[in-house]
């Protein structure tokens, strides 16, 4: 499998509000951006964790939801034609001999750029791993947090855990393929779409699958091959034969590969200066919740400020000989042309 090969001015890791606004500030300085995010859409925490929840401390907006803020930012940066690469986790970041950076993703994309901006918030969103002893040994062989190929589940004894849409959708989708299927949830109420819940209940009624109210107590197997899942229920422990286990407990943020890029960290945050928000490696900047400096506040507005200052420093790296004159969008016809508000 071969991914994209891309050369650009700036690679932004993270497409949350701060990463998006970085595109705006960099765009005003004529810098072209590519954004990479592990989620399937822009907005980061704002759209993944609280799309409908109101935010009250974005200057100029007495109240705005995470989704509205994201939509507005997308509109605001539209003139700059940034390119988005979703569903991708950056796995490698290193400096070439010529001073440019190489960024690789899990999907085997390779980006080359003189400037990298890490705007990764709390890290990357990854599936919650149940705290079951020894579960790591089964991951990728018997324990899966997503379905890549449905065929891998044909004629298998499957246990699915959870009560949300992922758990219920995969229950009804995999049931026809499975040798046996057991859905495990901690209570007899489901927050998934009611239609899917009804479908699951009909399958149970018809004896085509099992529903167990309880939780995983442990795993049995050898050598990464699962043989059974032990379940804790109101009536004691039971054992279900299984060679596939799919826990669906939603996502959580993990620092992930950021820790391996050789950047100076401070309590698992990237240490930066407060003039350019540059990390210990010149050319790599860190803005938003992922950075650390004296007095840092994890606010969206702090990230916006950091993006503006970072952009000035980034410009000097990409176009060292160009003299940058500071201008306002209200008065500069040059900036207004870039924004497409005048022709």
């Amino acid at each position: 499998m071969s991914g994209n090969r891309i050369s650009t001015d700036v690679v932004v890791i993270g497409a949350g509000p701060v990463g998006l606004f970085a595109v705006f500030e960099l765009g005003l300085l004529d810098l072209k951006c590519h954004l990479i995010d592990i989620l399937d859409r822009p907005g980061g925490q704002c759209t993944e964790l609280y799309p409908e929840k109101p935010i009250y401390d974005v200057p100029g907006f007495p109240i705005i939801s995470g989704q509205e803020l994201t939509d507005n930012l997308m509109k605001q940066i539209a003139p700059f034609g940034a390119e988005f690469h979703f569903n991708r986790m950056v796995t490698e970041l290193r400096k070439e001999a010529d001073g440019t950076f190489v960024i690789r993703t899990e999907a085997d994309d390779e980006f080359h750029a003189p400037v990298v901006v890490v705007a990764a918030g709390g890290g990357s969103f990854q599936p919650k791993r149940p705290p079951i002893e020894g579960i790591e040994a089964y991951e990728g062989t018997s324990v899966f947090y997503s379905v890549r190929r449905m065929e891998d589940f044909r004629d298998r004894d499957i246990v699915i855990v959870g009560g949300g849409d992922s758990a219920l959708d995969w229950t009804v989708n995999l049931q026809p393929l499975a040798k046996s299927l057991t859905l495990v949830h901690r209570r007899d109420e489901f927050r998934a779409a009611p239609a899917t819940v009804n479908e699951m209940r009909e399958l149970v009624e018809a004896g085509k699958m099992n529903l167990v109210i309880g939780q995983i107590a442990g795993l049995d197997g050898d050598d990464g091959r699962l043989s059974a899942v032990r379940l804790k229920t109101k009536d004691g422990e039971t054992r279900v034969k299984a060679d596939r286990l799919m826990p669906f407990f939603g996502l959580t943020m993990k620092l992930g590969p950021v820790a391996d890029w050789g950047l100076d960290l401070n309590d698992n945050l990237i240490a930066v200066d407060t003039a350019k928000f540059e990390s210990s490696i010149p050319g790599i900047f860190a803005i938003g919740d992922i950075n650390s400096y004296p007095g840092k506040l994890k606010l969206i507005l702090s990230g916006f400020h950091e993006a503006a200052l970072m952009a000035q420093a980034a410009k000097k790296i990409v176009d060292p000989d160009e003299k940058v004159i500071f201008q306002y969008t209200t008065s500069s016809t040059k900036l207004q042309r870039k924004l497409g508000v005048i022709s």
Partner: peptide, 11 residues
């Protein structure tokens, strides 16, 4: 809150 507790594996 109950809905969110569904997303912890150790409830």
């Amino acid at each position: 809150e109950e809905d969110m507790l569904d997303t912890v594996p150790d409830a």
